[in-house]
Amino acid sequence: SEEEIREAFRVFDKDGNGYISAADLRHVMTNLGEKLTDEEVDEMIREADIDGDGQVNYEDFVQMMTA
């Protein structure tokens, strides 16, 4: 549901600035027990970053979650 997606976005957007940065993503993945290299984190950001601004905004996140 849209509310679940919004809630998930809030979990990833640690600093609440409306964007998921590589640092935000790394933090959440580490908490989930996933040890990722910087390259892996950057690749995840690139794949999710639809508009190419280097971070994942809510619209990018929705597209990723509903793809």
Rank of each mutant, 00 (worst) to 15 (best):
K35D: 06
I5H: 02
E7T: 08
E43G: 10
S1G: 06
M64S: 03
G18D: 01
S1C: 13
I50M: 09
L25F: 14
N17H: 07
A23T: 11
R10Y: 03
V41I: 14
L32Y: 13
L32R: 04
E7P: 01
G52N: 09
E39G: 07
R6Q: 03
I45Y: 05
N31V: 12
F61E: 00
M64Y: 08
V11M: 11
L32V: 05
V41L: 13
E7N: 10
E39Q: 09
E43F: 12
S1M: 08
E3A: 12
V11W: 08
K35I: 10
N57W: 14
G16C: 08
M44K: 04
D13Y: 01
T66Y: 06
T37Y: 04
D49K: 15
R6D: 01
R6K: 05
D24C: 13
M44R: 05
A8K: 09
K35S: 11
D49V: 13
S21L: 09
D49N: 14
M44N: 01
F9N: 00
M44W: 12
G18R: 01
V28L: 08
E34V: 14
D24K: 03
Q55S: 08
I45R: 03
S21G: 04
D24E: 08
A67W: 01
I50C: 07
D51I: 09
A23D: 13
M44H: 02
T37H: 04
V28Y: 03
I20Y: 00
D15A: 09
G33E: 05
D53N: 14
F9P: 00
R46T: 05
M44T: 02
D60G: 11
E40L: 06
F61Q: 00
E40G: 03
S1I: 07
F61W: 05
N57T: 07
E40H: 06
D24V: 04
G18H: 02
N17I: 06
E59A: 08
Y58C: 02
E43Y: 13
I45F: 11
K35T: 09
G52P: 13
G16N: 09
M64C: 08
M65C: 04
K35L: 10
T37M: 04
Y58T: 02
K35Q: 10
D24P: 01
V56N: 00
N57G: 07
G54F: 04
D24R: 01
Q63N: 08
D51G: 12
E39F: 11
R10P: 00
H27L: 12
T30V: 11
M29N: 02
G16S: 07
M65G: 01
I5R: 02
F12L: 05
D60F: 15
R26N: 05
T30A: 13
A67S: 12
A48T: 06
N57Y: 14
H27D: 10
E59G: 05
A67C: 10
I50R: 12
D51M: 10
G33N: 14
G52L: 11
K14W: 10
E40I: 12
T66C: 10
Q63S: 09
D38P: 14
A48R: 12
E47A: 15
Y19I: 06
R26G: 05
G16H: 08
V28H: 01
T30Y: 11
R6H: 03
Q63T: 13
Q63V: 09
I45T: 03
I20M: 04
E34A: 15
A67R: 11
G54V: 04
G18E: 00
G16T: 03
V28Q: 01
D51R: 13
R6E: 02
V56L: 09
Y19T: 08
L36W: 15
T66D: 03
E39L: 10
F12S: 01
D15I: 06
M29Y: 05
E7D: 08
A8V: 04
V62G: 00
F9R: 00
E47G: 15
V11K: 14
A48L: 12
E7M: 09
E40F: 07
G18T: 02
Y19F: 10
T37P: 03
F9C: 10
D24M: 04
F12A: 04
G54Q: 05
R10G: 04
V41R: 05
R26P: 06
L25Y: 02
I50D: 04
I50W: 08
E34D: 14
V62T: 03
E47M: 15
M64T: 04
D42M: 08
H27W: 14
A23E: 12
V62F: 06
T37V: 03
N57A: 13
F9E: 00
A48G: 06
T66I: 14
N31T: 12
R6W: 06
D24F: 03
G18L: 02
E3M: 10
V62I: 15
A8C: 06
F9D: 00
Q55G: 06
D24L: 05
E3R: 10
E39C: 11
M29K: 01
Y19S: 05
A23L: 09
M65D: 01
G16D: 06
Q63P: 03
E3H: 12
L32E: 01
D38M: 14
Q63C: 07
R46M: 06
M65K: 02
R10K: 12
L25K: 00
L36P: 04
E43I: 15
T30M: 15
R10I: 04
G52R: 13
K14T: 11
M44D: 00
R46F: 05
Y58I: 14
S21E: 04
V62D: 00
A48H: 09
V28K: 00
A48V: 12
M65Y: 05
T37A: 05
E3K: 11
A22N: 06
L25W: 06
A23Y: 07
D49R: 14
A67L: 02
A22K: 13
I5S: 01
T30S: 12
L36A: 04
R46A: 08
E40M: 12
F12W: 07
G54M: 05
T37N: 05
F61H: 00
D38F: 10
